[in-house]
Write a protein that binds this DNA or RNA. Structure first.
Lengths: 365, 365
DNA sequence: CACTGGCACTCGCAGGTGGTGAGTGCCAAC
DNA sequence: GTTGGCACTCACCACCTGCGAGTGCCAGTG
């Protein structure tokens, strides 16, 4: 009863929903609310009772629709910009809409169009992510988003230390997914490049193929076991590894790609300069987004965050659709789109969903 | 006579000017034009003859000022938004203004405030550049810009090959300045990680401390000399090096940092959504900026590009102030600001100039 | 001859007015 | 419960008006 449009689709695209939240609505309430949201998504304008009764084949007069709409407004699903204007959905109204939505999977042609964007010429992991956020933007006409894999969740492929200055050493970490992280660390004692080489070699032999956590544990074990032998080398390696790994957990700003911010500015709701500035501010300060994304990592499946649900004022009027990409069943990164709450969910959700699966498959091999 | 405000300052900040371009202007023309630009920069509003005659102590009646202004309009230095409005400077008017400008060097306090932004905690070269564009933005209230050093002009510190997949190899290049470049290349024959290690070691022993061009020459020479000995290794090294170096010359998009785009949006001239969108488009497509920056690299000293001088429509109403940073007398990268043509040149120029010198000094050591 | 005061003119802008139309709430009738 | 009718509300647009800043031109003055 909560999902009136058939259950098969639900299995297809696993959307995180809020079950039972709208149980008090009658079937007619639902139909009208759905119609209002649908129309508003299409027109971006307040929708009146007359439009609903004419366009959506409900066999109800405008007056009846008005009664229902008044109820829905009281229940917090709709709002009026001013008396004597039509209604627009609130965030709660959109929440109902997506909770009920069963988007159809992407057609074969569209899948193919997306797949064809990933050519072999793409280069390293970062480039794959940038291209991903570009294509998400291009196909959805919204801003596309892709976040680099979390270091903790991926496996090391390679570590390298390069001496830059007397006490400055550049650490280069390469993960399984072809993403390169680098970071400058300071050491107390000067180290020669040759020595750094030895350390790199040793660490590589130990940690290749391990995750960050595993690598840490393994190193500690190794240290204890062989400590007596080559005391000096191991001590230095231990130190450098520690420095290299610390604070490597959190996604840094440079690892969030947002492309196509401009397409979002085309939407009529951002015609006012003020709104646009607020939104671009949110983009520029990626820390806000990172927080949201981190939270979404906890939950499985495709996440939809509507307006105030993000608990950030800058995101008022904006929704996020996020999904994860995985490597061998483990969630490693996030991708999705940002757009106005009034976005075309049924079109965009399958795009995000398919792209997430595709990226997972790409990284797998 | 062309520079009426004393020549000592000219030596201090080397601005590229257009000499003799405004010789036909009388001393009075110059004073009034200068006053109009100054006032317009301060107020962002068309300036009338009355304002000039009152505020700028020229002892001229509004009527006389009007006559001169009419001449200046005919000569293309000023324009009227509409009849019966004041005048605003054209790009040519601003060009005159900066050609004549002798900005005073930054005060010791301000120098110190900028210097203090570079702490040792800053990390690798890329982070230094990002911080540079941030501080340029913060101190100028415009958008800050910093471009990574050109690969050709810097010296290699380290090269490393990491095997990602059967035929995919990740190349990691570290330059003298602590900037890490990485790139995926494809090889025809599978190579083991051990083999790649040998190749890295060999190449490092040959090219460390050389520039891209030198490295290429040296490699060719080495190849020829020792080819007979270890044929296979050298052939593979040669191939990989070639792949790694090709297309490494051009600054790629990811190496242009633009920070504080929003501060520019605060300016009254970008109150219209259309203008703002055009500008952000220019930011998003960095290729346009890269072209401008490449061109500016040719010329020595501080460059000012006003409005149409960039020959790009997207940059209408915008000026660039660019300077270079050097490593050992060689120009390696560019930094600067982007703002409305109506920016405070006399304040911003010293900031860009000082920052460029500072970054050069930082990279030097 | 350069400079100035005066004057008529132009035009953007802000504020006020009235008409239009979409949409509502309420009520009585079916 | 549903519907048609009706009075009402408001945003929006087109139109007008007065104000003020600024101009161009001209004749007068040192």
């Amino acid at each position: 009863m909560n999902e009136p449009r058939g259950e098969k689709g639900t299995e297809r695209i696993g959307i995180a929903r809020s079950p039972g939240a709208h149980d008090h609505l009658t079937e007619r309430d639902r139909q009208i609310l759905h119609a209002v949201v649908t129309d508003y998504i299409a027109s971006a304008e307040p929708v009146g009772s007359r439009t609903i009764s004419r366009k959506y084949g409900l066999n109800l007069s405008p007056a009846s629709v008005r009664n229902v709409m008044a109820d829905l407004e009281e229940a917090g699903y709709l709002q009026q910009p001013h008396t004597s204007a039509g209604r627009i959905p609130t965030d709660k109204g959109f929440r109902f809409y997506v909770d009920v939505l069963e988007p159809r999977p992407l057609s074969k042609q569209e899948q193919e169009r997306i797949r064809s964007r990933y050519t072999t010429a793409l280069g390293d992991g970062m480039e794959v992510l940038r291209e991903t956020s570009r294509l998400l933007s291009a196909f959805s006409s919204l801003a596309g988003l892709a976040v680099a894999p979390r270091l903790e969740a991926t496996r090391f492929r390679h570590i390298e230390f390069v001496r830059l200055r007397e006490r400055d050493v550049l650490v280069i970490l390469v993960t399984d997914t072809g993403v390169v992280h680098n970071k400058l660390i300071h050491v107390d004692e000067p180290l020669t490049q040759d020595r750094l080489h030895e350390i790199s070699n040793y660490l590589n032999s130990v940690i290749t193929g391990l995750t960050l956590r595993q690598a840490r544990e393994r190193l500690l074990a190794e240290m204890r076991a062989e400590k007596a032998l080559y005391d000096r080398l191991y001590a230095e390696a231990q130190l450098l590894a520690q420095r290299a790994f610390e604070s490597a957990e959190v996604a840094s700003e440079s690892e969030v790609f947002i492309e196509g911010k401009l397409s979002i500015a085309e939407q009529p709701e951002f015609a006012s300069v003020e709104k646009m500035k607020a939104l671009f501010k949110a983009f520029e300060e990626k820390s806000l987004l990172i927080k949201l994304i981190d939270k979404s990592m906890q939950a499985p499946g495709l996440q939809i965050i509507i307006g105030h649900e993000s608990e950030a004022d800058e995101m008022a009027g904006c929704s996020l659709i996020l999904s994860h990409y995985t490597v061998g069943d483990e969630v490693v990164g996030t991708l999705g789109v940002i757009g106005p709450t009034r976005m075309n969910y049924s079109r965009v959700i399958p795009i995000v969903d398919y792209t997430a699966r595709l990226v997972s498959r790409l990284l797998e091999q």
